[in-house]
Design a protein around this nucleic acid. Structure first.
Lengths: 213, 213, 213, 213
DNA sequence: AATGAATGAGGATTCATTCAT
DNA sequence: TATGAATGAATCCTCATTCAT
């Protein structure tokens, strides 16, 4: 389900829900709190969603869509795979920093676990990102831009795992540091680790290194 | 607080709690469910822990201790940093596979978020692991075994982030694959990515690579 | 807060609460008991009051208002201070006899003690009555109707203390005597004690006294 | 039952209970709190009292005995009735100020209300004090020291009611003023109100008054 | 005498959901 | 569409009491 399928009111509710999660955790995403934030009665929410589960599904849909959008935008740019990966990272971090609420959804895996429909949806969202990253990585491997001594699927795991961990830490710290800055640094690290031969891709740094030796 | 400081009954309760989290998520770690699993009345739990928060703290203590133990064991072996990192990975995965319940705690960040004492404890547990990994990495960097073109702190982030992501996926999949096997594969990947020069550390693979090129 | 500020349902709940206190003591004013008496679920009460404390405050508000009303009515009558005091007594006793539940609130000082907001409100209610009585007394003293050899504040203390004690005893006795009758008798006693010179105000009794000397 | 009939341990428990009531109200007189204060296990209390009710009865017994003692002491002094009344007041206030805990029992009427045995005992304690005061008053009336135009029973009501009210206010204020001082003042007031003719009973003060006029 | 562990009932409060209006 | 009131189940926690040791 794409956000376009939601009514204006529904999107309003989803937004409020995500805000709520971001600010006070999924635990405080109750119908009462949500209704108060939206500015309507609790009962009114049930005009727009049949149950709380449907709201959670909607949140996942929006989260998944937001993720997919990042990849969509990047695919359209037709940059080199490495540049694309860079964008994946920087765009994700930027998006999270702009809307910290979305980052919180990552934490909510737990909630979604109880309900198998929610769990499956969640897994799918994660897997989708993994697949997208893997595709880019494999394109880069084909072009010799990215190391081929490890399977693309594994590289995707490392890349996304690192990304998520950074976001998690940022969230746990109470947004205590600039995710964008920390993310950029992390990308530099990962970049160095996934390219096969620095000489080909970052001639400048090689020069620095030669000097520093 | 070390697990040794807990009474037998307390450890029993903690174990039941971790099981509960593992099987049905933190959401279902209620006093009633916990009491039922332990086989006592709800009130009885309060003779052993003053509050639910104390139980959660105890779980974190056990989790942190279990983590620390892995590092402790490894430090004692005095293997090369790279070998130590390998052990960190394999031992963690092994421990999680033996006690999947513990893996579930990783998910519970959310719950711990509401309560600032719990959140701080959680952050500390995570940070502790990060520090341990970073120390090993930096030792490896000094010995030239591990690449020095990226800060050790960043490498630690990548390593732990990947590890956690794998565990998360394993858990979300309903333990649908062998964590040990998948973990070993992930380690091979990470290993390749953190060593500076394949020639020195994995001569065999170099040969393969030479061929594959 | 005046009773007029409460909704119909709130007043219903307050009334039930006061009844409960009157019949079985404050100890039995539990949410469950209260809900049962009102004829709704426990949760339903929380739509009308945010907490039990709020209910207790509401009771005090009603009690305070009921007290204030007595004084209000009396002030409007513009009778002589002594007549006003008489009315204070008789009206209070009458009101308590009509609504014995209210009398029980006097006992509940204890409950209100734990919560400082409640305690303060309670003290204020008591102090308010004291102030009102004192004002009347001092007016009487100015007119020479009431003895001036003791401070008005002290007389107020004696008057209200006696009144309360009578009510307490009536309540403890299980409403085993007519409060109105006993109250009237008590007033006669107090009346004799606060007037300065019997000759001016109760010429009939003077005759008796002359004899008895 | 006199305090002499209690074992040392029992008296210790009763004392702790009274302290508890004084400090935090009857609501916090739970077996758990009591046991903690005494320094034993909850179960241990049941070696000394069969139930909580028995403990409450014991408290009432001690309270009643303490009251009776005041009257006993006074009867033995064979002072004039008026002097005796003065002592009743001053001694009570002094005793309460020395052991504020006892004052708190006055508040606990509520608790005792639920249980009819406790309620009866409580009533009896109060009635006993009333009777004692009444006896003294009537002796004073016979001697012409105290006004005879109102029944002794009524005067007793006024005297004790005032005394209790003062104690209640002192307690509610958080012991915010000197009960002894306020009590002495209250007595002066009551004294003036119960004597028939100042000239006969307080010649000294008359002198003062003459001077002050 | 005292402990430590347990019980069962009940405490206040919050939850998602329903429904008449 | 929305409200306001209600429900029933669940939340964590405390109570007085019991009992084997």
């Amino acid at each position: 389900m794409s956000p376009a399928d939601f009514t204006k009111r529904q999107l309003e509710i989803i937004d409020s829900a995500i805000e709520l999660i971001a600010e006070r955790g999924i635990q405080s995403l109750t119908i009462k709190n949500l209704a108060r934030r939206v500015g309507v009665t609790e009962g009114a929410l049930y005009r727009h969603f049949r149950s709380k589960q449907e709201i959670l599904l909607a949140i996942l849909a929006v989260f998944g869509h937001s993720n997919a959008e990042v990849f969509q935008r990047i695919r359209e740019q037709e940059a080199s795979p490495l540049k694309q990966l860079e964008r994946v990272f920087l765009d994700h971090f930027e998006q999270f920093e702009k809307k910290p609420a979305l980052a919180a959804v990552i934490f909510s895996e737990e909630i979604f676990q109880n309900d198998s429909l929610l769990a499956d949806t969640m897994i799918q969202v994660v897997q989708n990102s993994l697949d997208e990253v893997q595709k880019i990585v494999e394109a880069g491997q084909k072009l010799g831009e990215i190391r081929s001594d490890v399977p693309g699927e594994q590289l995707a795991l490392v890349l996304l795992g690192s990304l998520r961990f950074q976001v998690v830490r940022w969230h746990l710290s109470g947004y205590g540091f600039s995710l964008r800055t920390a993310g950029a640094r992390l990308w530099q690290t990962l970049r160095s680790m996934v390219v096969l031969d620095e000489a080909n891709t970052q001639p400048n740094e090689i020069g620095q290194k030669a000097l520093s030796l």
